[in-house]
Design a protein around this nucleic acid. Structure first.
Lengths: 150, 150
DNA sequence: TTTTTTGCAAATGATTTGCACTCCG
DNA sequence: CGGAGTGCAAATCATTTGCAAAAAA
């Protein structure tokens, strides 16, 4: 069933108008197989992991592919101000992100209803919504400890 | 009453542990007097506008001050992926942002309830929330026209 | 074939930083 | 006074880009 998910992703990438290349296949497989949810990796991290097994993937291609996956609505980009890097998250069950203002760690949370947001945004602004992102900033439990907030 | 708002901002800045300098005063006054809501200016834009009247304000200080104002919860930072720049918004009535994926234009919207978000985030993750940000991405009416989506 | 895509290296450019000087408190 | 804050210029560094070669459709 993992393979089915992978194939569905390829299909979605194609339907967004992009070709399926060997490199893109490696990257999609990597993202799905490595359960990136808890990691929220950056392009650099993905590249480093990937090149061990696939030396024929360049960093520029990783950047390029990740951007295409965002456009294809397979990935979500999270610009993390704390570390200055763009992180990625697989676009599955709708959820939001909680980012540590001290160490930059990102975790997912699911207990906030955002279903109506696109329609409301369209009603309010006339924009044609394609995606949305909810982000909470705060201090993670570990950093609370470190900072004596706990 | 504008002056009262300005004084309140100074107070808030002080209470966050920062000193009140001439430059910071200029910047806060500029932000409040120029109703930045519709503009969502960047550090560069603020600097350019400001230096006409106050040549003794450097770009580095503008960057620095804006960051302090964010920390003091007077401003909200919006990293706009489309133009690659950080925009700022005065932190008044809670609202969310709708960003054009084509031209980068940012508008405010108010019709989505986010009051419970911080508590929910804390309950779900154990983080100590200090702020949050809701952002919708889509194509603005003008770009819909340009792109033939309308 | 025709159009994309890749990979390398170089460019970009917004933001950050080091440091000597100045000023707020 | 002493620690913060400023201004300048230089450094940083994640991301983007140009272009020739390679691969998809």
């Amino acid at each position: 069933m993992m393979e089915a998910k992978i194939q569905a992703a390829f299909k979605q990438l194609r339907e967004a108008g992009f070709r399926l290349t060997e490199q893109r296949e490696f990257i999609v497989r990597y993202l799905l197989k490595n359960r990136i949810e808890p990691t929220h990796p950056t392009a650099e991290m993905i590249y480093t992991d990937l090149k061990a097994q696939h030396p024929n993937v360049s960093l520029a291609t990783v950047y390029n592919t990740l951007e295409l996956l965002v456009q294809s609505k397979l990935l979500l980009a999270i610009d993390n101000k704390t570390d200055g890097k763009r992180h990625y998250d697989w676009f599955g069950v709708p959820h939001y992100h909680v980012v540590c203002t001290n160490c930059g760690k990102i975790v997912d949370a699911f207990n906030f209803e955002t279903q109506d947001l696109p329609q409301l945004a369209q009603a309010a602004t006339g924009y044609l919504p394609s995606s949305y992102h909810v982000e909470v900033h705060g201090v993670c439990p570990e950093c609370q400890e470190l900072l004596g907030l706990k």
